[in-house]
Amino acid sequence: MEIVYEQNYNPKTADFTPILRAANAKKPDAIYIASYPNGSAGLVRALAEVGTDAKAVGGGMVGLQFAGLMAGLGPMLNGIANYDFFVPEPTMNLYPGASALIDRYQSKVKAENLKVDALGYYLVPWAYANLDILGQAVEAVGSLDQVAIGKYIRDNEFTSVVGKIKFGKNGEWERPRTLVVQYQGITNNDLQQFATPGTRKILLPADISTGDIQSFNSLRK
């Protein structure tokens, strides 16, 4: 694989069209973007304004999973392939309790008018599982001894709202659970469409995928 353009940008960048134009001039097949929320939104807008001939665009764009940005960007997201943690696709129902948790979260946010992410798919299930696993370990060990708790977490498999979790030797998940999703079929800026299946098809991991990757431009317009 040949890298034709690689640049860093500053968090203060107000407009990303010059960056995208410079990248497009190198005629890339794919554009991998690692960005924080401001940059992610700026680049998505630049993609809408300038366009690209690259076949795949996206990667590690933080922020596109946030309810506020998804609603704000709307159809401009179509075609982008990006990492995610949890989306309302049918295959995610493998995980017992996840849907119930999301339902509880969303109705609480709405009822109490909380100033947090309105949908909660991105971080809520994993954050819940985090504490759930810690709680299970504390109960099993029967004390707050950190070394013992750590050993228990490393040695055992857990069941939580995100399914069965086991950690590998390096401390990461034994079986990767980070999703790659592709935005498609988004027609307007309504937030609720992101709460229904189909707007973010799961490409990876293969065992729970709900769609195949399509070229960036085939999903635009």
Binding site: P37, L69, G72, K115
Partner: peptide, 12 residues
């Protein structure tokens, strides 16, 4: 932050 939270906001 108290009124709107820390989320990023856009207009249409």
């Amino acid at each position: 932050i108290i009124q709107f939270g820390v989320d990023h906001r856009l207009v249409e």
